[in-house]
């Protein structure tokens, strides 16, 4: 196995570089070989007016025309607005809920292992099943949500959940949060378990308040995995597609139509490969911007305490 390479050692600085690159090589090779071509292809398309035909792409260079168009495209801006709303609201709730639940699961209580295993359940339901399940739960006539709320006297009549602009997006977010926050909880829980307990005991002896203990011991201990989870969830949420595809298909009146859905329609339904690629590049750039802001903010937090 890999042990053949026994001779490596924590050697002098010159070979440190080489070792570092050697270790990175498999990952970089896989990424470059598999995503290299599609990525270049997309970049090329973004600067053309290509349309997809039965004989391949029918294209001419168009320079920055696609980007000039998309900046002016009101529908795209609206879709971006919904995307940001979905991303920020769902990720924020998932993070807060995830940390709270992780703290809870880190307590001693009867049946802890079982409850921890249970946390995998929402996450193990494939997104499509999750989306269909919630669609059925929200069904205005035969869904269980209306029945439940009515029986508890919380509503007076059956109402529509996915057919009302505004509400529809929030209900999709609820379904998404339910599935994804356990993931945050488990990642944070994993980090919590690596914080040495004597740190807490020492702090307790020093008379530090629970809030202080959280701020000075817990938070620094979970910050690394927490920020990974935050960033990865943000990227995922920004690309949201499947759950919307199943639950609302962008309706009612486009109020759940997100950027990925927009790209999908542009390139698959309307076959405009060129502008579809330009929209995809724009989405990627915005996502990268968002992540950069995060990373800068997280760096600051890391150095603050």
């Amino acid at each position: 196995m890999l042990f053949a390479a026994k001779s490596y050692n924590f050697a002098a600085t010159g070979s440190r570089e080489r070792i570092a690159w050697l270790f990175l090589l498999p990952m970089l090779a896989i990424m470059a070989v598999v995503t290299g071509f599609p990525l270049l292809n997309t970049l090329w398309l973004a600067f053309t007016d290509a349309s997809l035909t039965g004989r391949g792409y029918d294209w001419n260079w168009s320079g920055l025309e696609n980007f000039a168009y998309l900046i002016d495209d009101k529908n795209f801006r609206v879709a971006l607005g919904y995307t940001f709303y979905f991303t920020i609201v769902s990720v924020a709730i998932e993070m807060v809920l995830g940390v709270l639940v992780a703290l809870l699961l880190n307590q001693d209580f009867f049946g802890r292992t079982l409850v921890r295993t249970l946390m995998i359940l929402p996450w193990a339901l494939p997104t499509i099943v999750n989306a269909m399940m919630w669609r059925l739960i929200y069904n205005p006539e035969f869904g269980s949500l209306n029945a439940l709320l009515l029986q508890f006297g919380l509503i007076d009549f059956y109402r529509s959940w996915l057919g009302v602009p505004g509400t529809a997006m929030n209900m999709v977010i609820l379904a998404d949060v339910w599935k994804n926050y356990p993931l945050i909880a488990l990642i944070v829980l994993g980090a919590l378990q690596t914080i040495p307990k004597d740190l807490y005991e020492a702090a307790a002896i020093d008379g530090a308040s629970p809030w202080k203990r959280f701020w000075h011991i817990t938070l620094p201990g979970i910050l690394g995995p927490f920020s990974v989870a935050l960033i990865l969830r943000t990227i995922e949420a920004f690309k949201v597609f499947d759950i919307i595809y199943v639950m609302t298909r962008g309706g009612p009146a486009d109020t759940t139509k997100t950027a990925s859905f927009f790209v999908y329609q542009e390139s698959f339904s309307y076959l405009r490969a060129g502008s579809g690629a330009a929209y995809a590049v724009a989405v990627t750039l915005l996502s990268a911007m968002l992540i950069t802001i995060y990373i800068i903010a997280l760096r600051k937090t890391e150095h603050a305490p």
Binding site: I235, A259, F268, G276, A280, T284
Partner: peptide, 15 residues
């Protein structure tokens, strides 16, 4: 590497 991951999959699927 993350940036490649930010690209909506629909853009990579055809190539």
């Amino acid at each position: 590497v993350l940036v490649t991951y930010m690209m909506p999959p629909v853009a990579l699927i055809l190539p």
